[in-house]
Simulated assay, not measured.
Amino acid sequence: MVSSSFKAGFVSIVGKPNVGKSSLMNKLMGESLSIISAKAQTTRHRIMGILNGEDFQIVYSDTPGILEPKYSLHEAMMNYVKVSLEDADAILLVVSLEDTYEQELFERFQRINTPVFLVINKIDLAKGTQVEDKVAYWKNAIANIRDVVTVSAKTGANVSELLPRLLAFMPQHPPYFPQDEYTDRTERFFASEIIREKIFLNYEQEIPYSTEVVINAFKEEETIIRISATIYVERNSQKGILIGKGGSSLKKVGMEARQDMEAFFAKKIFLETHVKVADNWRKEKFKLRQFGYLE
């Protein structure tokens, strides 16, 4: 039975692309839920991580990086950010050590009523008084922020300071999800994200941004999971690059993805991948709906 003093709430993790939001989410959860790469715009969906304690449940939302939309996929991504902010009981606004205030991206946080905690990430790269200087800079730039926390999502430094601060703002409420769950996403989703992460790590330029991964089959047996995936690209030329000479590039992606899946699912994985072309899928709403970005 849940006590009357139980706290439960939603925390939105937002920021520009490539500020380390996904790394922070994974550190807060103690689980690798969000894919990570050095490239910007890796996260495309809203991914919830459900952190359960004896007397609390915090639902973290890792969201796509805030940007000015250039096509329909970007618009769908920014809608995930909008919904996450509307749901939130508290907001973690993540910036990198080198970031500066940009009015068109950060102005909304001057007006928002939800408590905003500014998280300055990548302090492991700081020199001299850079951290102290940045704390003063951001307190002056965004008058509405409740507090500033400096962290390194890479090393985990100071990340533990966030939980007690957030719990102070969580309302008394029964848990929103069963207390043995740690995410709202399915196993199929994580299989597709693991493959997509390997594409981001193995290819340059437009290839990672032009690909979408769809899991066609996910059959779990006693000792093995059999997964069939299709990787969609926007043009035939990208298909050739993705596959590589004699299939070598695609084979490498499949091997790395399988290894991570076996660690994630704690089972042997049989993975087969296919590559198909979906012309300009990022700009066409019916294809985005087909891939699950739109209702």
Rank of each mutant, 00 (worst) to 15 (best):
Y80Q: 15
V81N: 10
V81D: 06
V81C: 13
K82R: 15
K82C: 04
V83Y: 13
S84K: 11
E86F: 13
E86R: 12
D87A: 05
D87L: 04
D89M: 14
A90L: 00
A90P: 00
A90N: 02
I91P: 04
I91E: 02
L92N: 03
V95E: 08
S96P: 04
E98I: 13
T100I: 11
E102L: 05
Q103S: 13
E107K: 15
E107S: 15
Q110V: 07
Q110F: 13
Q110C: 05
P115H: 11
V116S: 02
V116T: 15
F117L: 04
F117E: 01
F117M: 05
F117W: 12
L118A: 02
I120D: 06
I120S: 04
N121S: 00
K122Q: 08
I123W: 10
I123A: 03
L125H: 04
K127F: 01
V131Y: 05
E132A: 06
E132Y: 05
K134L: 10
V135C: 00
Y137W: 15
W138R: 07
K139T: 08
A141R: 11
A141C: 04
A141Y: 07
I142F: 09
I142N: 06
A143H: 09
N144F: 06
N144D: 06
V148W: 08
V149E: 00
S152M: 03
T155P: 13
T155L: 12
G156V: 09
A157G: 02
A157M: 12
N158R: 10
V159C: 03
S160C: 01
L162E: 05
L162D: 10
R165T: 05
L166G: 00
L166R: 12
L167G: 05
A168T: 06
F169G: 07
F169L: 09
F169W: 15
M170V: 00
P171R: 14
Q172K: 15
